[in-house]
């Protein structure tokens, strides 16, 4: 019973961070700050949701024993989490570099070292 409550808390946290990522896409003014919201919050939300999956699987595993199909499900979910963790920041880095090279400048920036470097 307590395990169900902990799972609910983790699912609610994951959904909250994903919602904040999507709202941040609309509230921030330019593309770099939107990238902050869209990368960090979805990654952390994914981690929380997969932790909820693992907690639920471990509780079923303790009750029913090792060869239940739930353990295969949780193993594959963990591999999906690793794929997200490796690819998400790398993709964000590629988008940021491509955006800067295609000429989108940060809005309201107080300092831009890279621009000075290009002009010099």
């Amino acid at each position: 019973m307590a395990i169900d409550i902990i799972t609910y808390v983790f699912i609610a946290g994951g959904c909250f961070f994903n919602l904040m990522a999507v709202i941040g896409l609309h509230r921030f003014p330019d593309f770099y700050t939107r990238l902050h919201a869209g990368t960090k919050c979805t990654t952390f939300g994914s981690i929380l949701l997969i932790i909820a999956v693992l907690i639920q699987s471990i509780s079923i595993w303790v009750v029913e024993g090792g060869s239940s199909p739930q353990s295969i499900l949780s193993l594959h979910a963990f591999i999906a989490l690793i794929a997200i963790l490796v690819t998400n920041p790398t993709g964000a880095h590629a988008i940021a570099r491509a955006g800067h090279r295609s000429g989108v400048k940060p809005v309201k920036a107080i300092v831009d070292d890279l621009e000075k470097e290009d002009n010099a």
Partner: peptide
């Protein structure tokens, strides 16, 4: 165009979840 790609990247991660 980069704004649209940021939205698309976010959608990809959420669809995986």
């Amino acid at each position: 165009t980069p704004d649209r790609i940021v939205g698309l990247d976010t959608i990809n991660t959420i669809v995986v979840m």
